[in-house]
Design a protein around this nucleic acid. Structure first.
Lengths: 212, 212
DNA sequence: TTCAACTTACCGGGCGTTCAGTAACTCTAC
DNA sequence: GTAGAGTTACTGAACGCCCGGTAAGTTGAA
């Protein structure tokens, strides 16, 4: 058998002001768990494999979290919390509908990039357990808020109305959410540039235009 | 224990000209397996649960297929085969680049809708096994062919060039692939109308335009 | 000495898979 | 027309493995 692969030992806290040996921090465990869930899928990631990635034993993981589903819940809560926060910012609640929509889309791209693994996990849920179903419900509520913005922008004449509003919203989310499948932080494309591109393509399309 | 739920018994073959009993058709087994894989996720779908959906026993399933992974392989092969077929049609190989691109995008939407569960399964792969990795490789090749078309259309001046070509292609695929997450066949939106909407939004964008 | 942070050893259960046996049916010989 | 051989399509009971989770003992810093 190969020796242990303590990839994450470097992520342990230094002095944490408490007693005991150099301990794991919960957020370090969570980061690595979420990465593993994304690599293999939540169901396909065993607690044993997860412990191996952490360079510890299964039981050590159980010292920090109450179970596998608890890890999932913590991760999803973070992703959803940050997404929902975008909707409560002032730029999302006042001003012309199309400007609010642009702000929220930019905000969604920002959260998606900043919390990439967490949002990735959220977007891949199937709804097998109650934890997953609760998260899916919160996600639906977020989507609904954005759909309302799209509707308002259409009514205000800022968006084309020859394509159904539901279809519009869904294609828009499809485009944005797909980012988790390919965006690599640290590459040549910054998150600001990415947000610009998303807004440009979404509003003006891919076609070459005679005007502007 | 509750009685059997023979949902799929109706899908058995009638007289098959051969000896033996009234059998299951392999494609009926596959249809139900793919539906279950999409509902729960491939890993989370046990052969027992699958057999229950079929109204049979686990071991009966093993009479038809060599294993769980075999079901996955058959399903992915179907989805990929139909997608790849789009690229070999005459309209995809000759004519102006932007028209070929539009044809392929329409074709992709058509396959996606016609083989919805099969393509859904394909798009959710994680690459845990060799079967999955092989399918992902074939999918990457398909994506690459479309990316080449996008490049040609840009060079020909039919597509905007202020957004990076890779980003363009990825956002385009993100939009199209998201269809599997929400499209319900038999609803008010036909697949023809959906393809029209996708082409419209992709090329002209969501914004209201002064021209046309 | 105390207590956080583990480790080793283990449990019940469900998983994918196998296999011997058998029911249901057709085909052929007479 | 029917015996019986042959084929197909299963059934039911396991198998070994690995899963998520736990109990109890150990380590090392304060």
């Amino acid at each position: 058998m190969a020796g242990p692969a303590p990839e994450a030992r470097e992520q342990r806290r230094g002095g944490n002001g408490r007693s005991g040996r150099d301990p794991y921090d919960l957020s370090a465990v969570l980061d690595i768990a979420v990465a593993a869930f994304n690599d293999f899928g939540y169901e396909a990631t065993s607690m044993g494999a997860l412990a191996e990635r952490l360079g510890t034993s299964k039981s050590a993981v159980y010292y920090h979290v109450s179970g596998k589903e608890d890890l999932l819940r913590l991760a999803l809560d973070r992703a959803l919390g940050h997404l929902e926060a975008v909707l409560t910012e002032p730029e999302a609640t006042s001003g012309p509908a199309d400007e609010r929509l642009r702000f929220v889309l930019r905000g969604a791209v920002r959260v998606l990039v900043d919390d990439l693994p967490y949002v990735t996990l959220l977007l891949r849920l199937r709804g097998n357990t109650q934890v997953e179903r609760d998260a899916l419900e919160r996600r639906r509520e977020f989507d609904h808020s954005v759909a309302t913005l799209v509707d308002e922008a259409r009514t205000a004449g800022s968006l084309r109305s020859d394509v159904d509003a539901r279809t519009t919203t869904r294609l828009l989310f499809g485009m944005i959410n797909s980012i988790v499948e390919w965006y690599k932080p640290g590459g040549p494309l910054t998150s600001e540039q990415l947000a610009d591109d998303v807004i440009t393509v979404a509003f003006d399309g891919l076609g070459e235009r005679s005007d502007r």
